[in-house]
Amino acid sequence: MIRVQRLTKHYKVHKRQPGVLAALRSVFRRRFTTVKAVDDISFEIAAGARVGFLGPNGAGKTTTLKVLAGLLAPTAGEVRVKGFVPNERRYEFLRSIMLVAGQKQQLLWDLPPADTFELNRAIYGIAPAEFRERLREMVELLEVEDVVKKPTRQLSLGERMKCELVAALLHRPTVLFLDEPTIGLDVTMQATVRRFVRTYNERYGATVLLTSHNMDDVAALCERVMIIHHGRLIFDGTLADLVRQTLPEKRVTLRLAKAVPGGDLAVLGRVVEHRDDAAILQVRQSDVSDIVKTALATLPVLDLNVEDAPLEEVLANVFAGAEAKRLPEAAS
């Protein structure tokens, strides 16, 4: 479905010092630097998969998404989406994909979303009866019956994003690129968007590639994650593998009936957090059952929970590790 081989995308960026003199100099002599937004990455994604594309700001996620959506031409490498070369932007390719960006909109600002839906019906050549049926289904799923006839500019961010999704999916794209789809949304809206994307993927077998800084999006939607850092792919696998490889230790959360001394906790494992009524320990996976037994026997435990380290922490570790590895390489 999606095949990327040795993709590289460089930008030429005009660079100058601040100040009037530098501005004046730049009129006569421009200095450009090359930014390696994406640097020799390869991957494949099967039809129907939901994949998370993670990385810090400026890592190259959105650039990769834009290359896959045909908005940017690669500097080098080969990209195929459903057999098409994206930046040739063939009609059949454009009919089969969609990019939804949390910070860009296709809804017409001064008109109600219903007008954008109608425009997309005509653009994608959807038969009227089919259009009505698809619209009814999505409007119901996203609960936007009451907002589609209000001018877009008067909608809340969450309502707009829901309508963006309706507009984006009316033509039933089989490849969906989502760039920060829950950015700025409240938790209820985030959950609705996630549920909707998941339903769409399962119902229509669409391939979903998602970038997000919101780890709840990733945990809820993505079976597989790819991590990009400074334009290079540094991890490609399941979420479970990522956690296992990066922070394999488990987190044991204890809710305590009364405060206990730090020393009593330290004998069980590394103390991540310690309050009067609760503590979090980090322990080796193989030691979990023994430590749980000991904790229950020796401490005033009201409740106990064992889970993986939070994804944010896992990712922070991945990025820190990659950065530590990169700096000596860059210096040499």
Binding site: K66, G70, L71, L94, M98, L99, K104, Q106, I123
Partner: peptide, 12 residues
């Protein structure tokens, strides 16, 4: 501002 992208991804 990059908004042209939303026109470019449509098949018209």
């Amino acid at each position: 501002n990059g908004q042209l992208a939303m026109r470019l991804i449509r098949p018209v």
